[in-house]
Design a protein around this nucleic acid. Structure first.
Length: 578
RNA sequence: CGGGACGUAGCGCAGUUUGGUAGCGCACCUCGCUUGGGACGAGGGGGUCGCAGGUUCGAAUCCUGUCGUCCCGACCA
């Protein structure tokens, strides 16, 4: 490809609406352009990279025994009614009607369709196990698209679905996929951590996420991952559990009484005012879970993990209650407290979920539903009724103790690039997808599902591989392998050497660009660095001595070599990919 | 959906406070010059100032509405 013909427009400056590096760089280097919120055009450079990621995924999935197919992007409402997700999925599901008024949706994931396919196509245990996958655009009408390709509404995903006769088969395939995933991300230049996670809207029992670990100041990593350096424990914050380290749990109050606590809306203010540890206070937060009021209780120095709370109450949606809603609860119960002074004491018709951490508190402080007053010296079973529901709803914090080995946990930020689930029979039962088992009875499929965000993986790779000059994607997924730059296009010898290099590399199957633009060298070098050609051969003045410059974008190393040697180096590097 | 900000040429921005008929840099086209890290000179093309109303002799500027975008919170590959 000649640079003068390559469809790419690099920008001198970063776009103003981009926040994270991968977004800024992909736009500036001419890989992508936004079309609508969370919807992007993949320009030729991006598309080449995406296809390379796809092909790595294909190779590893095929090697792992999965078979590729392609399902429709538009799906009928009936299937979603069968699985029950038409109601459950919420606004993220892009719904539409066809001209007949039939309900349709844009596929955010394909459990329904694949289950339908299996139901129609798999009649006997003899056809099992099987793992089917596709690579396709998905659409999720995200609440808040952001970060370019890292959180688009339309994105490319590989989704695989496995069908087994029993749990043992599923477990085996789950392991098989986990291994394939690790290889896939490695080949894309990404080190990943496989962490336990909540299974969310997809459902099922066990699930793990593959996280690309980011440094803490990189906000492209939207997930907090807790992990143990001693053993292998690691989990997304929505799922992580821990043992609390020693803390003061006795408030030390001699007797229970209501005391004045002016201007103590926050735990900090209250602790300072009463001169006590925050860990001796019961914090009450009011939530709305599917229109039902919920009070969540945690120790004063801890935070509620909302996903855990949502699971604990079995809700689809959860949000913190507004001041007006809290007031409504208070009025209905004949109380006057506002946020900061709330507790379940004397409140009816509200679900109360306590975190385990509050149980061991003694002589503690708790709200009494009267503004500017708290109850001190309270104890469970006496002044405060023990909540009927005690669950783990606490957000883990760094330094808490690993449940597996007792070491302190650490935290890091991560970009979720892959996710695997054990679905079990959730969809097969709901949709009556059964096969004839060896014993002659009908049984539902035991299913697993396995996703990889293709476009997100590519963006994560940029997030991990760049410098102040531009993108440094690894050779395996860079749009091109190399660029040949004649310093001065009017210099005949330089052009001759450059052309020869270009042709030789092309013949050898190297994906190479010749920068034939009559530009000053600075412009060409800046563009080459920005776009991120892994190798650059520069034909400059030293062609007179039979030498060209060979530069490695990844490590910045530069050497003067003969043109033959440069060609050999690149061909060797490209060969080593396979 | 709640809170905040912003919509002026492909990109980055000024002009809005105090209304007077649109500008700068980059990019693009032509010519000259230049060729090892985003040169320089001359000339040129491109914007109904997000959209719709309103106020006014006159609106990018003031008012109302609306749409869009981005940022902070709750979701996920």
């Amino acid at each position: 490809m000649k640079m003068s013909k390559l469809f790419v427009q690099t920008l001198r400056e970063f776009p103003s609406d981009a926040e994270v590096m991968s977004h800024k760089l992909l736009v500036r280097a001419g890989y992508i352009r936004r079309l609508a919120s969370g919807v992007y055009n993949y320009l030729p450079l991006m598309w080449r990279t995406l296809r390379k990621v796809e092909n790595i995924v294909r190779q590893e999935m095929d090697a792992a025994g999965a078979q590729e197919l392609l399902m429709p992007f538009v799906q009928p409402e009936e299937l979603w009614q069968e699985s029950g997700r038409w109601e459950v999925y919420g606004k993220e599901l892009m719904r539409l009607k066809d001209r007949q008024g039939r309900g349709m949706c844009l596929g955010p994931t394909h459990e329904e369709v694949i289950t339908y396919i299996a139901r129609e196509g798999i009649k006997s245990y003899k056809q099992l196990p099987v793992n089917l996958y596709q690579i396709q655009s998905k659409f999720r009408d995200e609440v808040r698209p952001r970060f370019g390709l890292l959180r688009g509404r339309e994105f490319i995903m590989k989704d695989a679905y496995s069908f087994d006769v029993d749990e043992a088969g599923l477990d085996k395939e789950y392991e098989n996929m986990a291994k394939a995933y690790t290889r896939i991300f490695e080949r894309c230049g990404l080190e990943t951590k496989m962490v336990q996670s909540d299974s969310g809207a997809i459902g099922g029992s066990v699930s793990h996420e593959f996280m690309v670990v980011c440094d803490s100041e990189n906000n492209a990593g939207e997930n907090d991952v807790f992990y143990c350096e001693k053993c292998n424990y690691s989990a997304n914050s929505n799922h992580a559990i821990s043992i609390l380290p020693q803390a003061v749990t006795n408030g030390g109050f001699e007797k229970a009484e209501i005391v004045d606590t002016p201007n103590c809306k926050t735990i900090e203010e209250l602790a300072a005012f009463l001169k006590i540890e925050p860990s001796t206070i019961v914090k009450t937060l009011v939530y709305v879970a599917d229109k039902q009021y919920v009070m969540a209780l945690v120790r004063g120095d801890k935070t509620v993990e909302e996903i855990k709370l949502q699971n604990a109450v079995g809700a689809n949606e959860i949000r913190i209650a507004s001041a007006a809603e809290i007031k409504e609860i208070m009025i209905n119960n004949g109380k006057t407290g506002e946020a900061g002074y709330i507790s379940p004491i004397g409140i009816k018709d509200v679900t109360v979920v306590a975190d385990k951490s509050v149980l061991e508190l003694k002589n503690f402080v708790i709200g009494c539903n009267e503004t500017e007053k708290h109850l001190v010296g309270a104890n469970w079973g006496k002044e405060a009724q023990l909540p009927e529901k005690v669950e783990d709803i606490r957000l883990v914090q760094e330094g808490e103790i690993c449940v597996d080995c007792g070491s302190p946990l650490k935290v890091t930020r991560g970009i979720e690039v892959g996710n695997i689930f054990k679905l079990g029979t959730k969809y097969s039962k709901a949709m009556n997808a059964v096969y004839m088992a060896e014993d002659g009875t009908e049984k539902p499929f035991i299913m697993g599902c396995y996703g990889i965000g293709i476009s997100r993986t590519a963006a994560a790779a940029v997030e991990r591989h760049h410098d102040e000059f531009g993108i440094k994607l690894p050779l395996a997924i860079a749009p091109y392998h190399a660029i040949v730059v004649p310093v001065n296009c009017k210099d005949e010898l330089q052009m001759k050497v450059a052309n020869e290099l270009y042709e030789k590399l092309q013949k050898a199957g190297v994906e190479v660009v010749l920068d034939d633009r009559d530009e000053r060298p600075g412009v060409k070098f800046k563009d080459a660095d920005l776009i991120g050609f892994p190798y650059r051969i520069t034909a400059g003045k030293t062609v007179n001595e039979g030498l060209v410059e060979f530069k490695n974008r990844a490590n910045g190393e530069m050497e003067k070599v003969t043109p033959e040697k440069a060609v050999e180096l690149i061909i060797d590097a490209v060969k080593s990919l396979a």
